[in-house]
């Protein structure tokens, strides 16, 4: 009988494609790419069983730089695509990635409902508090008094979006904050998020060194404020009351029911075709 040989162990480099990133030197997104490839190697996942879905933005270019299946979708629409894929192919490990503009601004509504549906996938937001790709406009997580963009010379003037609090309120079952400058920790968080059976959200503070060069200093401000994980949603939300925005760790983790569609057995492609026939 023919034996299927075991899969060789893959190294992080095996999960990278031969496309050279066009990100600016120093951009935090490089470290996120590195952590994702390290995490996939730690989990010994076969490349053909992983899909990485993104929206539009510098951060959203990430699928092209990996060798797993990828889809660089539409601005703000990474989550609907990723959820659809996971529902159709529950056997795949589905990762979704993008920026704070992509995920919290144009894609904000999808973010709420993805948290609520709790479909088993990992959503990584590379949060640089700016629209990097379109040359440095304020994003939902930009501070109200940030005056460096010509579009908002007096600052955006509105309080920033609170990704962790909103994820908790909307129902995400695994909520994490990480920093691109701590690649080893980020790798661990991504591994844990992939292993979590539900919607995992990781806000990765990932500096845009070109439009927000002052973000480089964040490496001295981040701290392990969420060193202990809570399984109680209310308690986790309470901990955010005195969060300075730089606490890192797994804030909340709880196994909760995940949305599963009721598939009608026997529906094949021809049945679907019949339903669509006019």
């Amino acid at each position: 009988m023919n034996q299927i040989p075991p899969l060789p162990d893959l190294e992080p480099a095996d999960y990278k494609s031969d496309v050279t990133p066009v990100w600016c030197p120093g951009c935090g997104h490089y470290a996120v790419l590195s952590a994702i490839t390290k995490a996939l190697a730690e989990l010994h996942l076969a490349r053909e069983n992983v899909a990485l879905i993104s929206g539009i933005g510098c951060s959203s270019r990430i699928p092209a730089y990996t060798s797993v299946y990828g889809f660089h979708s539409i601005h703000g629409r990474a989550l609907p695509v990723a959820q659809g894929l996971k529902l159709a192919r529950p056997d795949l490990t589905v990762l979704c990635a993008g920026g704070d503009g992509d995920g919290f601004s144009i894609g904000g509504n999808h973010f709420l409902h993805a948290c609520r549906r709790n479909i088993n996938l990992t959503y990584i937001v590379m949060d640089n508090s700016v629209y990097g790709m379109t040359k440095g406009q304020a994003s939902p997580t930009t501070e109200a008094d940030w005056t460096e963009s010509k579009l908002t010379p007096e600052g955006p003037g509105v309080p920033p979006f609170q990704p962790l609090d909103i994820a908790l309120a909307a129902g995400a079952s695994h909520v994490v904050r990480a920093f691109s400058g701590k690649v080893q920790l980020l790798t661990k968080y991504i591994v844990e998020a992939i292993e979590h059976p539900g919607f995992s959200f990781i806000q990765v503070i990932s500096p845009c060194v070109t439009y927000r060069p002052e973000m480089r200093a964040l490496k001295d401000r981040v701290h392990d404020g969420f060193a202990e994980t809570s399984a109680n949603r209310l308690e986790a939300r309470r901990r955010l009351l005195d969060d300075d925005g730089y606490s890192l760790g797994v804030l909340f983790k709880s196994v909760e029911p995940s949305y599963t569609p009721c598939h009608r057995s026997g529906d094949g492609v021809s049945d679907l075709e019949r339903q669509f026939a006019l």
Partner: peptide
Amino acid sequence: KTWEYQWPGDDSPENAPADE
């Protein structure tokens, strides 16, 4: 595992600080 190495800092110690 990646996070089990006993490095003194946040990253592999010979990594030049790419973020700079």
